[in-house]
Amino acid sequence: MYQLEFETRHSYSPSPKGIVVPISLSYAGEFVRLEAKIDTGASVCFFQRPYAVELGIQVEAGRLETFSTAAGVFEAYGHMVEIDCLGHRNHAMVYFAKALDFTRNVLGREGWLDHHRLGLIDYQSSLYLGT
């Protein structure tokens, strides 16, 4: 038997849209609140470009990378921000989509999952988070 302990328990909506959690991003004193999907299959964290603009980030000054998905490829710029998810904060390189019509906000492995311990009981819509 193995046992893990977590500081936070969150009940998420049992939605077909994925496991969505409230988060905030901070950069240079600016702050935005948004929702993001937890996706253990995503290699990094992705966000829509308007959030970077609101945070005062010069999006195209970041590190441009190309990412592959099941449906093709897309480009995004990397920037260091602070992520706060359910009171658990960490600094991380996250990526803001180059395309303005990008519709996803995703917490992936690098930058988020690799900073926290995550427990899921999906049939109860329960998420456990620890640092």
């Binding site: 077909p16 849209k17 994925g18 999907k37 996706d39 299959g41 995503a42 998905t69 099941a70 519709t103 995703v106």
Partner: peptide, 11 residues
């Protein structure tokens, strides 16, 4: 706000 008819397929 996303369209509620579409399910998320991950990456």
């Amino acid at each position: 706000v996303e369209d509620s008819e579409l399910r998320f397929a991950g990456w």
